[in-house]
Simulated scan of single mutants.
Amino acid sequence: MELNHLDLINRRGIVTGAGQGIGRALALEFGQRGGHLLLVGRQLSTLTETARLVASLGGTTEILVEDLTQLGAVERIAHAVASWSSLDLLVNNAGNVRAGRLDLTADADVHSMIGLNLTAPILLTKTLLPRLRQSGKERGSILLNVSSGIALVGMPFYAVYAATKSGISQFGESLRRELIGTGVHVATVYPGATDTAMMTSQNAGSDLGWGRSSLADVITELIAALEAGAHEINTAPESRRAMQQLNITDPLAVDAALEPNLEALELAVRDHRSI
């Protein structure tokens, strides 16, 4: 697919999960490029801090405290930007994770991951797509979905999370093809394990295949790829990319490589919860 340079200057758009981690970092990137952003998240305190940081870089923001899984959340977000003259950016970043053996996973945790990681971004995109298409005709618009490296290599004890992130990946791929020629640039990013607050309760290290990248490195690579017009953006370290390639050519070899450390990995990740 031919790549076309994307202009990230003066974007007007929405960032979900903007209170911390990758969402906050992306808000800062668009903010320092003159963006006007609606910051969406669950906690006023973290959103307020993101807004302060964006303002210090020259951007402007509005804040909406919202749980995207609640009834009417998508409509409230759409209403918050209804008066804007244009909407040319949507970053579907909000997500949560609960790790552990599937048979020990609470039904509520299954519904929580599916609701926030998959259902919410699909419904939000569906609702805002007419406006993104309109802006696409004028200057081009950007839809950025944050998936995960786990969508490329399904890891044990993350079955539901992997399902949601694989789902958002295929959602993006299908929608990209649906929107060819409309001016809506659909991109999906696949971060590997990243040193953010989301990972503080996860205790697996590089010895178990969970070496972490710095947030700064992930964002630098993501923004450079987006500016270059990439649609599929993989920010995983080289060691993980080798496993991703092996998973394509010989997936059972990945099974065999993971098997000796399954018990240790379960112990290291069983308390991994982001919300």
Score class of each variant (00 low, 15 high):
36 H>W: 11
260 P>G: 10
44 L>E: 12
260 P>S: 09
96 N>H: 10
21 G>Y: 09
17 G>D: 10
46 T>F: 00
206 S>Y: 06
104 L>Y: 04
2 E>T: 13
144 L>D: 12
3 L>C: 12
220 T>Y: 12
79 H>S: 11
130 P>T: 10
224 A>P: 03
188 T>Q: 05
45 S>W: 00
236 A>V: 14
47 L>S: 06
24 R>Q: 15
181 G>E: 03
71 L>M: 11
200 T>M: 08
262 L>R: 15
177 R>C: 09
204 A>R: 01
186 V>R: 00
173 E>N: 12
205 G>Y: 10
228 A>C: 11
121 P>T: 12
60 T>E: 08
81 V>K: 02
117 N>L: 02
6 L>Y: 10
85 S>Q: 15
138 E>C: 09
2 E>V: 13
201 S>M: 04
65 V>P: 03
34 G>C: 06
87 L>Q: 06
61 T>F: 03
111 H>S: 12
261 N>I: 06
22 I>W: 01
199 M>E: 10
179 L>E: 03
163 A>H: 08
89 L>G: 00
150 I>W: 06
55 A>P: 02
30 F>S: 00
150 I>P: 02
25 A>I: 11
154 G>A: 15
258 L>N: 13
231 H>E: 13
160 V>Y: 01
206 S>E: 15
204 A>M: 04
199 M>I: 06
79 H>T: 12
206 S>C: 06
138 E>H: 14
5 H>L: 14
34 G>D: 03
222 L>P: 02
137 K>S: 14
64 L>M: 11
230 A>I: 07
143 L>K: 01
